[in-house]
Each structure stands twice: as C-alpha cells, then as structure tokens.
C-alpha cells in the first residue's frame, strides 16, 4: 500500500467534529441510580458518590443531566490543587462536584449524595494543625498593636 491508497479528503471549511448525540437510555439509568442513592441516604445511609467520568456520556447527555437537576441554594469554590466547583442541585443533598486541574481542564466530575460533599469538610489533621498554629495569634500581642495609619 502506498500513500496514494490512503483515502484522504481535506475540507478546510469543516467545523469541529460533533460528538455523539444523546444517549437517553444512559441518562435514564443514571437517574435511576441517583434515586436509589437518595433513598439510601435519606434513610440514614452513608455518603454515595457517582463518578461521571467513567460513564459513556456525551456532552449532550451532560447538558441534559445538568438541566434536569438544576441549581439549588449552595454554590462553592475550593482552591486546593487547582480549582474545584461544587453546587447543590435543586434536590437538597444531591451535589454536583467538578474537580479542575486548572481553569479549563476538568479531571473528574462526580455526583455526591449526602449532607455535604467531602471536599468541603475540613480534615481532622488539618484542624489539628490549625489548633496548633492558632495560639500564635494571641501569643504575639504586637499583632494587635493599633495601626499607625489614622482612621478617617
């Protein structure tokens, strides 16, 4: 086979390649799964997490899902190893969690079912660290010396 046998057709006007369309069956299955988890958590069960990245969802599917779940009362941003975006859907206890690498690239996208998403909670070790560092605030009284600038 030579280069000439490779069927190439170049069209510079071609727009971006469309992703595969809606996979409604997949979205429906996902909604069913979420319903089960919500029931479990409502009855005192443990936090549940559904990873969206591993599911064969197209962009159109994600948009559909976002529309169906909507946005609720809480919206938070976490800055730890790049930004993370978290919001509660219109269903309290169902959180949409997006982990970003930097401003653009999404590394992981999850639906969490529970009172609060785990990334929002402070870890006990970090709290211990705070407890250790905190007394420095009042151990060094000069921190509280009145500022030299005059108040207007």
């Amino acid at each position: 086979m030579s280069l000439g046998d490779i069927p190439i057709k170049v069209d510079f006007d071609a727009g971006p390649q469309p992703d595969a369309g809606l996979n409604t069956a997949m979205v429906m299955a996902l909604l069913q799964e979420i319903a089960t988890h919500l029931n479990d958590v409502a009855n005192g069960g443990e936090r549940q997490v559904v990873e969206l990245g591993n599911l064969p969802l197209s962009d159109a599917d994600i948009v559909l899902l976002e529309q169906k779940l909507g946005r609720g009362e809480v919206h938070a941003t976490v800055s730890a190893a790049g930004p993370s975006e978290i919001y509660e859907t219109t269903f309290p206890g169902l959180w949409w969690v997006k982990y970003f690498n930097d401003a653009e690239s999404l590394v992981s996208q999850q639906l969490e079912i529970g009172p609060a998403p785990m990334i929002l909670e402070a870890h006990r070790v970090d709290i211990e660290d705070s407890a250790q560092r905190f007394p420095a605030l009042f151990d060094s009284p000069e921190l509280f010396a009145s500022p030299e600038t005059e108040s207007p």
Binding site: E46, Q48, V49, E51, V78, A80, Y99, D126
Partner: peptide, 24 residues
C-alpha cells in the same frame, strides 16, 4: 498543602482507574 488536595488528587486517580468513588 491541605488534605483537600489529597482528596482531590485521589478522586482524579480513582476516576481514571475506575476505582469506586466511595473508596476515595
């Protein structure tokens, strides 16, 4: 660097390795 970073890092790894997110 806080533990949140660990959690996030592990969430990313778990996602790519199909490790259940509950194990993160």
């Amino acid at each position: 660097i806080s533990r949140r970073s660990f959690l996030k890092f592990c969430a990313a790894v778990a996602s790519s390795m199909a490790i259940p997110a509950s194990m993160v």
